[in-house]
């Protein structure tokens, strides 16, 4: 465990807590893409299958349970909570995310570390996580200015993967045979997807204005 990875896990945790706070405090999920949340739930379930077979550390197990629990709670809230579900604007959340699931699964069938059930699903979850934010970014573009908590959520989500890239560089330099190429390349793609969002976020922060995304 290194500081970059720990910082990455913490910003990831913060992003999920910010989202839960927003939904719980405002009893509203406007501006949030249910499709992105469903993709993240799939990512965590597919990746943490080893939860009960490989014990790595208490921290690892606890964080996996928290991530799976929170992502399923958010999807449950947005789909079934009698108050929150009414604030979900499905006519703007129209990204066809099932194509992302299919595409990532096909890619995982061809590019993986080992051709085993767990490894293929692990690679699938890595690819899917890289693109899971797309429905949310499309929704942000469509809805123009959005409320701060949603913007903070996307910002922390992008920062977490950026920290992980530093973690992979650090581990590559310090561990002899560290070759985590699938995760590193997918992580770079994921962070690149946030790049334009980060640019507009920084501009709005510098001008102390509300985030304006080009339509």
């Amino acid at each position: 465990m290194n500081i970059f990875r720990f910082a990455g896990d913490m910003t990831h945790l913060i992003s999920i807590l910010v989202l839960l706070l927003k939904i719980y405090a405002t009893k509203s999920c406007s501006g949030i893409s249910l499709k992105t949340q469903e993709l993240y739930a799939i990512v965590f379930v597919a990746r943490y299958l080893d939860l009960f077979t490989d014990f790595i550390s208490v921290y690892n197990t606890v964080m996996k349970l928290v991530f799976i629990g929170c992502s399923l709670a958010i999807v449950w809230c947005m789909r079934l909570h009698r108050v929150v579900r009414r604030t979900y604007n499905k006519d703007v959340d129209t990204f066809r995310h099932y194509f992302l699931v299919l595409g990532c699964f096909l890619l995982a069938l061809f590019v993986h570390e080992k051709f085993t059930f767990q490894e293929v699903l692990w690679a699938f979850s890595i690819y899917l996580e890289a693109v899971a934010i797309l429905p949310q970014l499309v929704l942000l573009q469509r809805s123009g200015n959005v409320d701060n908590l949603t913007v903070q959520y996307v910002f922390f989500l992008g920062a977490y993967r950026a920290f992980y890239i530093l973690n992979w560089i650090y581990r590559y330099l310090t561990e002899p045979h560290f070759g985590r190429w699938i995760a590193s390349v997918a992580g770079l793609v994921q962070t690149a997807l946030y790049a334009d969002f980060f640019y507009y976020y920084f501009i709005s922060w510098k001008n102390n204005a509300k985030l304006q995304l080009p339509a």
Partner: peptide, 10 residues
């Protein structure tokens, strides 16, 4: 933390 060979990252 013990770094297991498998996927030890979240």
């Amino acid at each position: 933390f013990p770094e297991a060979s498998s996927h030890d990252e979240l």
